[in-house]
Design a protein around this nucleic acid. Structure first.
Lengths: 219, 219
DNA sequence: ACGTTGACTTACCGATCGGTAGGTGTCAAG
DNA sequence: CTTGACACCTACCGATCGGTAAGTCAACGT
């Protein structure tokens, strides 16, 4: 098994990368597998050979994203290491959550793609969920919920409130990256640049405000 | 011109209504004009007869939405009327903005459709903007910006900051309606119901926090 | 009675969709 | 040298896409 030399794994990755870029830009129905393949200098049958169906390719893209988002979390679990992990564990869960959300808005192209896909998936899910069994992004949201539950003022709130709060925060955070290119198109690059410089701090203020406010007391 | 009896105008409206519902649910590329027509008991050629192209139909849907969103604004302009308009004028622009955003989250099906379309348009715009001249929703955003500029603490901020702030707020507000059905699908109707009860107040807190914070000072 | 207009139809068009069938070429193991 | 696995190909499928052409049909003004 000298598959380390074999370029096949790398091709698979290139396929998923290109699929992610195009799905993010145009949406599931807005891209054909032939277009994805053409971008790679291949035919659509090469894609179908590796993934079987367009739906499965899309699913793999989303699963990869969920993993990436989870990996952005400041990790306190494997606290066996040493100093730095101990520090992370010492941070309050509220701060960890802040850091996690902040880590999501580093303005890399990859991050923009992730946000766009996240948003699109939430928009399209109810339609496509009828054809697909489970939701690709649920593991990520579950992990996220567990962290918020460790915030003292939120620990007693029902699950629904935690999820509502997190979806709201995620929406706000992702919306930034999503609206970026559109803003650039409408108002020009200069305005977009200024807005980008502002967004990060503004978003952090918002997250702080929501977390501080705590859950709404059920009347 | 006894077109009051003629059902044609009504048919046009029915077409736009159905188009809005389906575009909101599945996106521009996710629906065909034949599907829209089938839902109305017509053929796709009936739609093409009225609107020429799919793109134009979509554009009319968005223009109608922009008008509706603008009309949700508490109106201080035509302050010639009497008492109630005077009251509205007396409300600070910050409160007007709050009210406007709040008015957007009344949980009607129409409102959910509007939010979904708004979000989809922001996602798709950069792709489709290459084929279409201008942006259908710009009038709405302009009106919105003008109102924020009348808030004292924001009046001196550059346009870019106002637009950034508004896009952020709009995103948060609309995200609520958009994520609703997905949440319902994932966590069940009961959780979704609880979350819905929470969202309105949470959103208002967030808006308040962002408005109070004021623009970020350019360093 | 006649012509016009507008709503809506059937009948198409070429292009493209996702997916299947059946290859070809390469490479490594036996 | 053969065999099998794998990556990727051409060729093709039926369905559907947005859009065009040429009508049919009822209601209208004259």
């Amino acid at each position: 098994m000298a598959s380390a030399f074999h370029p096949s794994a790398s091709t698979r990755e290139r396929m998923i990368d290109e699929a992610r870029a195009l799905f993010a830009e145009r949406g599931f129905y807005g891209v054909s597998i032939a277009q994805i393949a053409a971008e790679l200098g291949l035919t659509k049958q090469a894609l179908l050979h590796h993934f079987g169906t367009k739906e499965r390719l899309y699913g793999l893209v989303l699963e990869q994203i969920a993993e990436q988002l989870i990996s952005l979390q400041p990790r306190p679990n494997s606290a066996s290491k040493a100093g730095k992990d101990a520090e992370v564990a010492d941070l309050g869960p509220a701060q960890q959550l802040q850091d996690w959300l902040t880590a999501m808005i580093s303005d890399t192209p990859l991050r923009v793609e992730r946000s766009r896909l996240l948003m699109r998936e939430i928009l399209d899910n109810q339609v496509r969920a009828e054809h697909v069994g489970s939701w690709y992004l649920k593991p990520f949201l579950d992990e996220f919920t567990a962290l918020l539950r460790r915030v003292p003022s939120w620990s007693c709130a029902p699950d629904a409130q935690l999820q509502a709060c997190l979806l709201q925060l995620l929406g706000a955070v992702n919306y930034h990256a999503v609206s970026g290119p559109t803003v650039r198109g409408i108002f020009g690059a200069e305005a977009a640049y200024q807005m980008n410089a502002v967004f990060a701090r503004q978003m952090r203020q918002m997250v702080q405000a929501v977390l501080d406010a705590g859950p709404v007391i059920d009347q």
